[in-house]
């Protein structure tokens, strides 16, 4: 059983970090992963895209992906961007 990787999400999750987060996540493919959302101050559309895209990827790969310690800013950002409760792993699905 492979170790669960923990990836800390950056403070600013938008255009500025989308590419590097994508690359980081791509490198962690094929194994369980946990995203730590405690440091997030700002969630932007491109950041959300990467996260949702990762969800699909992990589903396709049959691997678990979870989000822990979402910061209040992250939760507010998810709500603003239209992620309803339990719609995705991001909100507890």
């Amino acid at each position: 059983m492979s170790e669960t990787q923990t990836i800390a999400l950056p403070e600013t999750l938008d255009m500025r970090s989308a590419q590097s987060l994508r690359d980081q996540l791509a490198a962690a493919r094929g194994a369980p992963a946990t995203l730590d959302g405690s440091a997030v101050r700002r969630l932007g559309a491109l950041g959300l895209q990467v996260l949702l895209s990762a969800e699909r990827q992990w589903q396709a790969d049959g691997q678990p992906l979870s989000l822990v310690d979402p910061s209040p800013d992250l939760r507010a950002g998810l709500k603003l961007l239209g992620i309803a409760e339990s719609q995705s792993f991001l909100t507890g699905a």
């Binding site: 989308a18 895209q49 895209s53 699909r56 990827q57 239209g82 309803a84």
Partner: peptide
């Protein structure tokens, strides 16, 4: 109230990190 439409979003391996795949209905 906002609803996100991510139906066009590909999995990570096909994702262009700066591409536009999302749409919102408010």
């Amino acid at each position: 109230t906002v609803t996100l439409d991510d139906s066009r979003l590909p999995a990570l391996e096909d994702l262009d990190a700066e591409g536009a795949y999302l749409s919102w209905t408010a």
